[in-house]
Computed example of a mutant assay.
Amino acid sequence: MADARPAGAPTVLRVVLGKRLQDLREKAGLSYEEAGRALDVTHATVRRMEKAEVGLKIPYVEKLLRVYGVLDAEEVEGFLALAREANRPGWWHRFRDVLPEWFSAFVSLEGEANLIRAYEPHYVPGLLQTEDYARAVLRAGMPHAPEADVERAVAVRRQRQALLTRDRAPLLWVVMDETVLRRPIGGPEVMRAQLDRLVEATDLPHVRLQLMPFAAGPHPAMYGPFHIFRFPIRELPDIAYAENLVGASYFDQRDDVSAFLEALDRMCAQAAPAHTTKAILGGIRKEI
């Protein structure tokens, strides 16, 4: 499990390059300590670079590549160019005043994934929220924040949603608890508009929405919400994300992620089939 408070939220590219550095070190047969001595730094610095917990210092990266036996000048320069790109802040950096550091990493993963699976027992997922619904949710979660901060947080959510309309949009597959649709947020008009938004989303070819009805009883993920990200990048494993009141945890170990995947697969089998979602949403809307 990776702690959710790194020194600067890592971009996905930084994660990938960190894993490449790890592969090169291991292929060279060097330990953290030996690599650290080559840089005249502690072994922890090398480990943190590989785990994307710190930025990639270009002189360090260049020297490590040489130590690891990467001697081709063109290959070295290509790696360094990627490292410089990886150190650039993402678009969300300008919202860092209202975006928690631990969630910045989430936005980076979300933006690079080609498959996003999620279980949500409390709220409509951010990628599918209307602005009014998002505003009501954010006000509840930021009770002491100035109105301007809430609006900036809404702007972050709006910009995140752009990935659903871009070319080669990711597949978004969500299991949402019936509680989400029964909890009044923002008043009847806001809820009706939000349900309409969900109905529209079911028509998108890259959105699959399933509802877990009360009648289905207990299920394997009653502990809380989580996401699983899959990427089109060979070096990057599936990553699971679980959130709590003051932060979040990211999991990339195979056994940990497998536990999330198994729970979600079981829930998908237990939830109402995706082709029935639109009718269920329409029925709930009539009740509001």
Rank of each mutant, 00 (worst) to 15 (best):
D238R: 11
L195T: 12
H219D: 07
N114E: 15
L198N: 08
R37M: 09
A118G: 14
G69W: 02
E235R: 13
R135K: 13
E33V: 11
L115G: 01
V107H: 06
A140N: 08
A221H: 05
I58K: 03
H219Y: 14
S108A: 14
A248R: 00
F260N: 04
L71F: 05
T45G: 00
Y119M: 05
D255L: 13
V207H: 09
E85D: 14
G186A: 07
E33H: 05
V174R: 01
D132A: 14
T130A: 09
V175K: 05
A44H: 09
A28Q: 08
E75H: 11
L204C: 09
L164G: 04
P89I: 01
R48I: 02
P184I: 11
L209D: 00
F251H: 10
R168K: 13
A169F: 07
L127Q: 00
A145R: 02
M212S: 02
R117I: 08
Y68A: 06
A263L: 01
K63R: 15
L164K: 08
L99T: 07
I280P: 01
L13W: 08
Y119I: 06
A73I: 13
L245Q: 11
V16M: 15
A216K: 08
R183D: 04
A81T: 14
L39R: 10
L281S: 06
A73G: 08
G126M: 02
L24Q: 09
G224C: 01
A215H: 10
R158K: 13
V70M: 14
